[in-house]
Amino acid sequence: NQESVVAAVLIPINTALTVGMMTTRVVSPTGIPAEDIPRLISMQVNQVVPMGTTLMPDMVKGYAP
């Protein structure tokens, strides 16, 4: 099972992602793959992401799977 990126904290809208904001977990449905965390650093979320929420591609500005 592939791990997906999950919010480790509440991430406010338009916040640039940092390593500490993200964790990984096997979830269903799957979100952004864990191995993409290095690509996500400094990208901004386009909505509020509650802690424990799986990051989906459409939540991150400029992210393309």
Rank of each mutant, 00 (worst) to 15 (best):
N1Y: 06
N1H: 11
N1F: 12
Q2M: 11
Q2A: 15
Q2H: 10
Q2K: 15
Q2V: 09
E3Y: 11
E3P: 11
E3T: 12
S4K: 02
S4N: 02
V5T: 05
V5D: 01
V5F: 01
V6C: 03
V6M: 12
V6D: 00
A7V: 04
A7G: 03
A8Q: 10
A8V: 09
A8S: 12
A8C: 04
V9P: 00
V9K: 15
L10R: 08
L10K: 08
L10A: 15
I11C: 02
I11Q: 00
I11F: 02
I11L: 09
P12C: 03
I13V: 12
I13H: 07
I13D: 12
I13F: 12
I13N: 06
N14P: 01
N14Q: 10
N14E: 05
T15Y: 06
T15I: 08
T15Q: 10
T15W: 06
A16E: 09
A16Q: 12
L17H: 00
L17D: 00
L17W: 01
T18M: 04
V19N: 14
V19M: 15
G20H: 06
G20K: 13
M21V: 08
M21P: 01
M21Q: 09
M21C: 03
M22H: 01
M22L: 12
T23C: 03
T23V: 09
T24N: 10
T24F: 10
T24W: 05
R25F: 04
V26C: 03
V26R: 14
V26N: 15
V26Q: 14
V26H: 15
V27N: 06
V27S: 14
S28R: 03
S28G: 09
S28P: 02
S28Q: 15
P29V: 05
T30E: 11
T30I: 15
T30C: 03
G31V: 06
I32Y: 03
I32A: 02
P33T: 08
P33F: 13
P33Q: 09
A34W: 07
A34P: 10
E35M: 10
E35C: 03
E35T: 14
E35A: 10
D36H: 14
D36K: 12
D36E: 13
I37R: 10
I37T: 07
P38R: 13
P38V: 07
R39H: 12
R39A: 15
R39V: 09
R39Y: 12
L40H: 01
L40V: 06
I41K: 05
I41H: 04
I41V: 07
S42G: 12
S42M: 06
S42C: 03
S42F: 14
M43V: 07
M43C: 04
M43H: 07
M43D: 04
M43F: 12
M43A: 14
Q44H: 10
V45A: 07
V45Y: 00
N46H: 09
N46Y: 08
N46S: 11
V48E: 09
V48G: 13
V49Y: 01
V49N: 00
V49P: 00
V49T: 04
V49W: 01
P50S: 10
P50A: 13
P50H: 09
M51R: 15
G52Y: 06
G52V: 02
G52T: 04
G52R: 04
T53N: 15
T53Q: 07
T53R: 09
T53F: 05
T54A: 05
T54E: 02
T54W: 02
T54M: 07
T54H: 02
L55K: 01
L55N: 01
L55P: 00
M56G: 06
M56S: 06
M56F: 11
P57M: 06
P57I: 05
D58E: 15
D58G: 13
V60Q: 01
K61A: 13
K61G: 11
G62E: 08
G62T: 08
G62A: 05
A64L: 13
A64Y: 08
A64W: 12
A64M: 11
P65T: 13
P65N: 08
